[in-house]
Each structure stands twice: as C-alpha cells, then as structure tokens.
C-alpha cells in the first residue's frame, strides 16, 4: 500500500432529486484528470451515482467520503435516514419502496442496490432502523 491517498468529501442535499448526482459527476471528473482507466471510472461512477440517488430518495441526503489511492477507490455514503428493514429484500432486483413521484422521474425500479453490487468489487451495507444506512463501495484498480 502507498500513502498517496486523495480524499474528497461531499454533503448531499436530500430535498431535491434534480440535484442528485453532482458528487458522482465531480468524482468522475477527478478520476478522469488523474488518468484512471475509463472502465474503472465507469464502475465507480455508476455505483456511486446509484447510491447517491438512493440517499436522496430514501434518506433526505447525507455525506459521501471518497478516498482514492493507486490501488483502489473507496466511496462511503452515510445517511441518517430511516434505515433498511430487510437488506436481503432490498438487494432483490425489482424490489422498491420508492414513491410514485420518484418513479415518474425515471427511478425507483428496484435496480439500485443490485446494480451497485454489480459494478463494485466490494460492497458493504450496514443499516439500523431509525438511525441510518452506510454503503461502502470499493473498486480495485488492477496493478
């Protein structure tokens, strides 16, 4: 491991779905500037964007901490939302608790968490009812 780690921190505003994705877009830009390969950028961008959207839809926003090292990109999204009652169920494709207004905006198809899992090399999710949810996404950079 090297000690060269770049950290980025974001506050995600939960009141407006229109603005969701700003942090993911910024991270994508930074990774591109750092010369990270497009395939790795794509994995990070899609998984982080899904998680950021989830944070706005379900948890009224939260914080995102990104750490970038030459070996891996780690994204930790933490919210103080209602928590997930049944993580196994939430991981099922097609299962969604998103309201109709969110579906009208093109989301809430129950693909978010499964899609994060698909693109991340490691995904950890911890949740406590009434306290919040933390999603950790790790994408490895092949050496």
């Amino acid at each position: 491991m090297t000690d060269e780690i770049l950290s980025l921190n974001y506050q995600v505003n939960g009141s407006d779905l229109q603005s969701a994705g700003v942090a993911s877009s910024d991270v994508k830009k930074v990774l591109r500037k750092l010369g990270v390969s497009p395939e790795i950028i794509r994995k990070v961008a899609i998984s982080m964007y899904e998680a950021e959207i989830n944070m706005v839809i379900h948890a009224n926003g939260g914080t995102i901490d990104v750490s970038i090292s030459p070996e891996q990109i780690k994204v930790v999204l933490a919210d103080n939302g209602p928590g997930i009652a049944n993580i196994d169920l939430a991981m099922k494709e097609g299962y969604s608790t998103a309201p109709q207004t969110i579906r009208e905006m093109g989301f809430g198809a129950g693909m978010g968490l499964p899609n994060i899992k698909k693109y991340a090399d490691i995904m950890n999710i911890t949740s406590e009812l009434g306290k919040g949810t933390t999603v950790e996404i790790i994408v490895n950079i092949p050496q």
């Binding site: 229109q18 969701a20 994705g21 877009s25 994508k28 794509r42 899609i46 964007y49 093109g106």
Partner: peptide, 16 residues
C-alpha cells in the same frame, strides 16, 4: 428517451 429532467443528462454522463 421521453423522460425530460436533469437526471437524464446525469445518467447519460455516468454512462459515457
């Protein structure tokens, strides 16, 4: 797409 909001552009951005 027939969807008309900012997230269309953001999604497209993420997907290159």
């Amino acid at each position: 797409t027939g969807l008309n909001n900012l997230q269309v552009v953001r999604t497209a951005d993420m997907m290159d």
